[in-house]
Design a binder for these strands. Structure first.
Lengths: 178, 178
DNA sequence: TAATTATGGCAGTAATGTTGACGTAGCTGG
DNA sequence: CCAGCTACGTCAACATTACTGCCATAATTA
């Protein structure tokens, strides 16, 4: 565990909490660094999703609808089971939003050709339009962040984010799409 | 709203990747890049929070409790209003988890000295222990990601994450702590 | 044919969030 | 000093999103 990352920050302005006394200085710095990452993930995710939430609220939908739209859009003709595996939610939770999306004409279900039990999910033109509208809100933030941070930073961002997620999520991302 | 985008998307098996599509090549790549970032944020956040959720479930608590513990831990003697501003939830939503945390002895409320209307929130030793237990789960992932990605990547990660969040979130992070 | 798989559906529950209204104590400015 | 604002608490009602468990159907597979 090479966590010898000396920077010697004498802690912030406050003297309290988590006083490991003396020799744990380096260890403490590393911890602060990781706690700061917790903050980053919280705020970035909060504001990133918040951008789309505003639009969704006006349509009587929530984040769950957006997530479904997003992954169906990126994986046309995706079977329900694959979508469940991506979202890590239960069948019933997905069914709720999926029913709404189909009824409102955002998604169509088609019977699978190789396996006729499957209901392959695809966005309609209407669904693509909505997904795009939601994407545009988030796009602004991302484009801003990417532009401001620069190409090298973006690569680092990608690498760290991949490292945080589970192996099967990385695997999913690696396989192009389907 | 430009939803001219009729049914014309014949590329069934593979949506993105190397779609020249005439002169819009560069623009398209940029879009794919940003959509990939949506994926990254979803999976990283999903698995990052999931790590702590396992512990929380065993204690009959949820993410909301963890978020409160985290920010109280990082800001001892924080007034309720400040915590509300960080979490972006309503007073009532916070009150629910806060009541539980106080009743279970994880958090103490102390009257403010300069402004006696304030209830300053601080973790008890028990609260610190729980927060630490939750942190440890996430720490593994973060440490793994940071180690694997390298110091340069971590810097890029930080810069991009900061770019995604709102200005006031950046401001909060910049002020050290309180 | 029997077992498994993919999917759908129903019932009930929990966690988290919302709005709106009301109350109380304490601070602050004219 | 009083009026008004602020910080906080609380109650009621409701929506979204998640969960578990159970049952059903159709299609694939061994």
């Amino acid at each position: 565990m090479p966590d010898v990352k000396g920077e010697l920050r004498p802690l912030d302005t406050r003297p309290g909490e988590t006083r490991p006394a003396a020799g744990a200085g380096l260890l403490f710095l590393r911890e602060e660094e990781l706690r700061a990452a917790q903050d980053l993930l919280f705020f970035a995710y909060r504001d990133f999703t918040g951008a789309a939430d505003e639009v969704l609220a006006g349509l009587g939908m929530g984040r769950a609808h957006h997530r479904a739209l997003h992954f169906i859009g990126r994986n046309p003709a995706i079977p329900v089971s694959d979508l469940l595996a991506i979202l890590h939610i239960t069948k019933q939770s997905l069914a709720r939003v999926l029913t709404a999306l189909v009824e409102d004409g955002y998604v169509i279900q088609q019977q699978g050709q190789t396996d006729r039990r499957q209901r392959l999910l695809t966005l309609t033109a209407r669904g693509e339009a909505l997904e795009r509208q939601l994407f545009e809100r988030q796009r602004e933030r991302l484009a801003h962040a990417y532009r401001e941070a620069g190409a090298g930073a973006v690569d680092g961002f990608r690498r760290v984010m991949r490292g945080i997620m589970d192996g099967d999520a990385r695997q999913y991302l690696d396989r192009g799409s389907r």
